[in-house]
Design a protein around this nucleic acid. Structure first.
Length: 128
DNA sequence: CGCCTGACGAAAC
DNA sequence: GGTTTCGCCAGGC
């Protein structure tokens, strides 16, 4: 199939490359900037990158968070409701809230307590 | 090349 | 105010 969709090959992501032109790497960068004990949302990251409408892509990028080095603190990234929607993608599932609790973030019923207070906005903090 | 899926979000009902 | 649907964009089959 000579039908290459000119998409961004996820496997081409460079570790520790830092500022790559790949949208995914941008997501990883921002995610790494999340301070301990804080959380953010996929949409917030997407908005920081200028693609707020592509919040799904952020989550999609997180799909390869495990393959990227250094590992991305995806456990600090939750959805807009403060719910740990991505916990099922962790290994094992449940480690996400464990890590959050360990960092001082209270998690109850797969939901971040005081999420609004712990919310870390990359758009503001990173001043994009 | 086309259809479906997917770690979201906001609008509509 | 809770539930459902559409929209976004990219990847997999």
């Amino acid at each position: 199939m000579a039908t290459k969709k000119a998409t961004a090959p996820l496997k081409k992501i460079k570790p520790s490359g830092g500022t790559d032109d790949n949208f995914f790497s941008l997501v990883y960068e921002v995610a790494r900037q999340i301070p301990k004990g804080r959380v953010t949302s996929y949409g917030a990251i997407a908005a920081a990158l200028g693609t707020k409408s592509s919040a799904r892509m952020v989550g999609w990028a997180m799909n390869g968070c495990h393959r990227v080095k250094p590992k991305v603190p995806a456990h600090r990234v939750v959805n807009r409701n403060g719910m740990l929607t991505g916990k099922h993608h962790f290994n094992p599932p449940g480690i996400m809230e464990e890590l959050l609790k360990k960092e001082g973030v209270k998690v109850k019923n797969d939901q971040v307590i005081e999420f609004k207070k712990l919310f870390w906005d990359p758009v503001v903090e990173l001043q994009f």
